[in-house]
Structures are given as structure tokens and as C-alpha cells.
Design a protein around this nucleic acid. Structure first.
Length: 411
RNA sequence: CGGGGUGUGGCGCAGCUGAUAGCGCGCUCGGUUUGGGACCGAGAGGUCGAAGGUUUGAGUCCUUUCACCCCGACCA
């Protein structure tokens, strides 16, 4: 992509109404546009980050035999009434609307009930199980207060996965597999080291659920960490958890985190409430066991923007950067720069080519704000030496390399 | 939802005790520049969030309302 063709432009000043670092940087660099409080559009650079995150999640969910689908944004009232969760007193984030004939509809804030309802048509026998399904969906939640930029919006993208099993044991085994898959996701996103599987308040079925909490000052949660034992506990269940786990409070370190994932074991409760049964080998009806697993895609992007940034701008991890290379041409080297741009792309390297007629300083500043992992500079002076300047965004370290040396490093 | 704050060209801001709106960035045109956000010159762009009121006169005062931000509460 050529910068001259990108419709967004960088801003020197962040809008005054944004305080969250992630939103300030993402807006300034042209990744997102704020439509209203808690509602952001994802621009060309932003959507490439989203897609990269989604692809990592997709690969890991596929690796545990989950099937991707996409459910509906509009939902039926009666489906939610079966579990009592249509009520605004029970679920306070509903957006609701009506058809022209006055039929009441809900706008999907979760898809747990609808997927159970859907599966009633497909699950009849133990032979149909287990099943795991996931989707990337825009969730709509009427949050009382949106905040923290893209980390807590009223409209956001979430990967939600649901698994269905014949027994509690089978569900638990899958649940454990999901934990491992999630760890791989966070590792690949570059936040694995700071992301902890955390004991949190459970549902009706289990004492605790698990959250994936990522350490960041921009977070809203407090967790207690035992680094030695690799145990993390959400503040909301600290007293219970300490008793259960037999540890003392003063062994624990208090840290601020953002919840980047959450998994629930529903047991058979949801299926019982909604009538999702299967027939076992001995011809008896049983409720299906169910788990629910979420990863906030846009929230993960916000957390990464918060964690990987400095006073100059964003610093994307290689795996999710919108492009790998920011190519800066200095002076009258259009021909050589274009040739390099094409060679890099032919080698499978994604490139944002700053072909504008701007001064070097402006290009460097934008390169740093946008935060691609590598910057390659080409100029008359460098061409004479037969070298290219190669700069790492994270360390700022620069080296002079030939094209072959450079390609060896990044492709 | 409780408390606090802010709304003035695309963005950041100024506008004192009321007198027909200004600066920086960005944008357009011309010229000079070209390794760290260039410079000179000439321009375009605003019903001052909205509605109502007070006044000869309102960005400025009053009332209502909307939006946005922060703290709190909330967050299967």
C-alpha cells in the first residue's frame, strides 16, 4: 500500500475528548474513527490489525476442532425468555428494537441462548456430539458508561465459542483444551507473558470461571498474582479463592489488568432451561453439557495498543502489525524506491510505502506513529553505498544492510 | 444512574467587565527547500453544540436541552 493512496492522514494532536492512550494513538495514526462514545469505525490500517488478530484466533480455534459460523445480530425475544434473560432487570445491557408489526427484537449482546436454540435442530443423538462452534461477531451492549477508548465500547468485535458435550467430564476435558488454545493465542498476539488464567466468579454450575487477564494500567480489573505458583485471582473472588487454594493473601501481588478473554462452564444448566437434549446409547434423554468461551478482539487490539507504544506512537508486535515494513524514500529516488517496494512485496513482505513528497522528518514521524515493526529507508546516499537503512521500531536500533541481508531478516 | 468537567473552522486552542470572531496545525495556489514533523507569499474554510429568553446589541448573561470526557456505581 502506498501512503499516497491511503485515505487517512495522521494527526499531530489527539482529539481533546479522548483520554485513553489507545484511542488517542489509534485515532492519530488513522486506525480508528470515533463515531460516538464507545463506538468506533475501523479504518484501513485498523481492519488489517483486526484481521490479523482474528486469523490467529481462527487458527487456534480450528486446531481444537471448532467450526466457524456467523450468527445473527437480531435476536428473538422468546429465545431469551426461556432463561429469564430477556428482562432488563436481569441483563442491563440490552439494546432492543421492534419490527414494523411491533414484534420485539433484541440486538445481540451475547449469543448463548440463540445458539442453544439453534442446536435443538441439529443435535438429537450422542452421535452428534461433541460440537464446538465459534464466530466473530459485533456485539452490541448498552453500557451505562463507555470508557477506555476501544477497550470498552457499546459495539465491539468478539470471538465467541460454544461447545456441547454428552458429559461433564467430556466438557471439562474440552474446557482444558480451550485454556491451552487461548494461551497459544495470547502468546501469538505478543501478550502471552502478561496474560494470566485467572479465577473469577463462576456461574451456577462451577465455583469459579476463568478469565484471561492481561496486565495493563489501562485495565479495569484488579487481580492478585502468585507468580511462583502461576496463580491469579480476580479481586471479586479473592476471599473464597484463598480458602479454596490454601494460599495466604500476603504471598500475592496486586496488579491492574484488562480482561481479554473469559471462559464459562455451564454444565447442563443452560440446556435444561432451554430443552436441548440428546439421546444416549441406551435410548435415554439427557441435557447437553455446554461451555462458552470469549475473546474480545477489539479489546485485545486496544490492550496491545496500550502496552506496545511509546511517546512517538504505536509499536505493533510483528504478528499483528498491519504491514511489516514502512518504506521511506528520501530525495529523488522514486524509481529505485518503487523497485524496492515491488521486490519486498514479491518476497511476501507486506509494505506501507511512503511515496509522498514529504520531508524525511515528516515521514519518520509518521512511521513511528503508525508503528510498523520495521522501517526501511532508501536515499541517494544509501544507493551509492549499495545499502538500505533498516530500523527496528521497538528498539530504535538501526543497521545498514544490503537487500539480500535485509530480506533474510524479515521474510 | 450519582458527582464533576467541557462544547468556538477538519484537529488543538484564545476570546477579560456584552459591541458583527482570532491564532497554531492541517487544506488550496505560487515559489524556494529536501536525512528528523521546512520557509516565504497569497487564499479557502466558522448560523461559536441546539432551542428559547434578556438586551439597542449575546461566543460572552439566563432557562431548557443534546453531546462528549473523567470519578463512582454497574459489567452473564
Amino acid at each position: 500500500m502506498r501512503v499516497s493512496q491511503l485515505f487517512t492522514k495522521t494527526l499531530k494532536d489527539a482529539p481533546a475528548d479522548e483520554v485513553a492512550k489507545n484511542a488517542q494513538l489509534l485515532i492519530r495514526a488513522g486506525f480508528v474513527y470515533k463515531e460516538m462514545a464507545g463506538v468506533y469505525a475501523y479504518l484501513p490500517l485498523g481492519i488489517r490489525v483486526i484481521e490479523n488478530i482474528k486469523q490467529i484466533v481462527r487458527e487456534e480455534m480450528n486446531s481444537i476442532n471448532s467450526n466457524e459460523l456467523i450468527m445473527t445480530g437480531l435476536q428473538r425475544r422468546e429465545v431469551w425468555e426461556k432463561t429469564g434473560r430477556w428482562s432488563d432487570d436481569v441483563v442491563d445491557v440490552w439494546f432492543k428494537t421492534r419490527l414494523k408489526d411491533d414484534t420485539e427484537l433484541g440486538m445481540g449482546w451475547s449469543h448463548e441462548e440463540p445458539i442453544v436454540e439453534m442446536l435443538k435442530q441439529y443435535v438429537k443423538s450422542y452421535k452428534d456430539l461433541p460440537i464446538s462452534l465459534y464466530q466473530f461477531q459485533t456485539k452490541l451492549r448498552n453500557e451505562l458508561r463507555a470508557k477506555s477508548g476501544i477497550m470498552r465500547g457499546r459495539e465491539f468485535v468478539m470471538k465467541d465459542m460454544y461447545s456441547f458435550h454428552t458429559s461433564a467430564e467430556e466438557l471439562q476435558a474440552y474446557y482444558d483444551q480451550v485454556i491451552e488454545a487461548y494461551k497459544r493465542v495470547y502468546d501469538r498476539l505478543g501478550i502471552g507473558e502478561d496474560t494470566y488464567v485467572t479465577f473469577a466468579s463462576g456461574g451456577a454450575f462451577t465455583k469459579f470461571s476463568h478469565e484471561f487477564q492481561t496486565i495493563t494500567d489501562a485495565g479495569e480489573d484488579i487481580i492478585y498474582l502468585h507468580r511462583g505458583k502461576n496463580i491469579a485471582i480476580n479481586e471479586e473472588v479473592i476471599d473464597d479463592a484463598i480458602k479454596e487454594l490454601g494460599i495466604s493473601r500476603d504471598e500475592l501481588e496486586k496488579v491492574k489488568t484488562a480482561e481479554t478473554g473469559n471462559i464459562f462452564n455451564f454444565g447442563s444448566q443452560k440446556a435444561e432451561e432451554m430443552g436441548l437434549d440428546f439421546v444416549s446409547a441406551d435410548d435415554k434423554q439427557h441435557p447437553v453439557f455446554m461451555g462458552s468461551y470469549g475473546i474480545g478482539i477489539t479489546r485485545a487490539m486496544g490492550v496491545i495498543a496500550e502496552k506496545f507504544s511509546d511517546e512517538k506512537g504505536l509499536v505493533w508486535p510483528v504478528n499483528i502489525a498491519p504491514y511489516k515494513v514502512y518504506l521511506v524514500s528520501i530525495g529523488n529516488v522514486t524509481e529505485q524506491a518503487t523497485e524496492l517496494y515491488e521486490k519486498l512485496q514479491a518476497s511476501g513482505v507486506t509494505v506501507l510505502f511512503d511515496d509522498r513528497d514529504e520531508r524525511p522528518g515528516a515521514k519518520f514521524a509518521d512511521a513511528e506513529l503508525i508503528g510498523l515493526p520495521y522501517r526501511i529507508t532508501i536515499s541517494e546516499r544509501l544507493i551509492e553505498q549499495g545499502k538500505l537503512e533498516f530500523t527496528y521500531r521497538n528498539s530504535g536500533e538501526t543497521e545498514l544492510l544490503t537487500l539480500d541481508e535485509l530480506l533474510a531478516k524479515i521474510s
